[in-house]
Amino acid sequence: MSDGFEITEQCSGNRFHCEPGQSVLKAMEQQGLKCVPVGCRGGGCGFCKVTVLSGDYECGKMSRVHVPPESRACGEVLACRIYPLSNLTIECRPREVVETARQQTTTKSMR
């Protein structure tokens, strides 16, 4: 296991291994952990929003409704669309807070 990174989720204390190129959420699911809620796994629904407290990572495409640029800049991202480049410490906010955030977003209809 020389390759890969260790992910620590701060609220639960869960630690899990993530392969290079693997999303944090997929690594968590594969190891049977549930510290981050699993939604669409495609960057679309915002269910798996976490805050990255430390470490480097790359981002895939995520819905702008759930991850506007200002959130992305402060590490509020979707676990299904982050790929670690180092060990990471993440925090999964309690669901009620996520829900409030979801209700505050407005969905633009078209264009």
């Binding site: 939604g39 669409c40 796994r41 495609g42 960057g43 679309g44 629904c45 495409k61 819905s63």
Partner: peptide, 8 residues
């Protein structure tokens, strides 16, 4: 199931 953008 979901499409790659999360649409069900």
């Amino acid at each position: 199931f979901f499409d790659p953008s999360g649409n069900r």
